[in-house]
Design a protein around this nucleic acid. Structure first.
Lengths: 144, 144
DNA sequence: GTATAATAGTTAGTACACTAACAATCAGCT
DNA sequence: AGCTGATTGTTAGTGTACTAACTATTATAC
């Protein structure tokens, strides 16, 4: 029984390890530091500059609740990474726009994210990785 | 590029889903509610009643930092699940002891944890699961 | 035997994540 | 046009998790 592993437990442990060692993305010459999640959001916004992106999209993509998004984006605005602008066609929506500062960080952030991804994938074959993601997807579906 | 998945991202998303839907363990007739991590800790202590367990052990087993353990156990003490007792042979250590209330919850908590585990494993074969855990272990080792 | 290093736990400050309750706006229906 | 319900975002309060700095004790080394 004590040898049996629990999915939630193992994922939680791995998530903690990631948070500790792979979360902070210090960008040289930047005063404020982009935390792990900040980097992902900046990357997403940079890759979708041609469309309007709102908080509700961040919710869906990153699987976080609206209150969390609200707080995170408030911090990112304070740090000078984004602005939240109203749109004409719907007063409820606030369009998320990257600042120049954040856009300048994009390439470096992606480099860092990809570099870390390579470290995480060490000793894991492409086939194993595919299996891993497919099972993770099954687990995600089992939760809902 | 946008189709490529990132390990940290997918694990983070899954962890959020777990936290939202599989974390709370309401035990009938209990005033206070044992949160997800509380349940795990109670289970661990119940299964190791014959030995002395200290905060440093919880750190190692659950892969969380000492400050986190300190805060979590302070809350659990407040809720009446554990007591922290000094030991004679080392004044730095505080032995963790389950209260009667928590011991009474143990069987029900394990039932709930196992029940949830079954839901998480739906549509996943034993072989797949073994692969999944082995890759997760590789990822954990890649982080350190 | 005393100085130094290692270990165990706490506290302050911050980030991330949740629920619940709220306000504002929009969409649909009659 | 006006009511009802859905959508979007905020706020308050809490739990989990981190780092950094701290205290207290124990172990080691000289």
């Amino acid at each position: 029984m004590s040898a049996q592993k629990y999915i939630g437990m193992e994922i939680g442990k791995t998530n903690n390890l990631l948070k500790r060692n792979f979360s902070s993305n210090k960008v040289k010459q930047q005063i404020e530091e982009a935390t792990g999640k900040n980097s992902w959001i900046i990357a997403f916004l940079a890759e979708h500059q041609d469309e309007d992106v709102f908080q509700k999209d961040i919710e869906r993509i990153f699987s976080i609740r609206r209150s969390t998004v609200s707080n995170m984006l408030k911090l990112m605005e304070k740090k000078g990474y984004i602005n939240r602008e109203p749109v004409e066609y719907d007063a409820r929506l606030k369009r998320l726009v990257l600042t120049k500062q954040a856009m300048d960080m994009y390439n470096l952030l992606m480099e860092q994210l990809n570099e870390k991804e390579l470290i995480l994938r060490k000793n894991i074959s492409d086939e194993e990785l595919e299996t891993f993601f497919s099972i993770l997807l099954k687990i995600q579906n089992n939760i809902k």
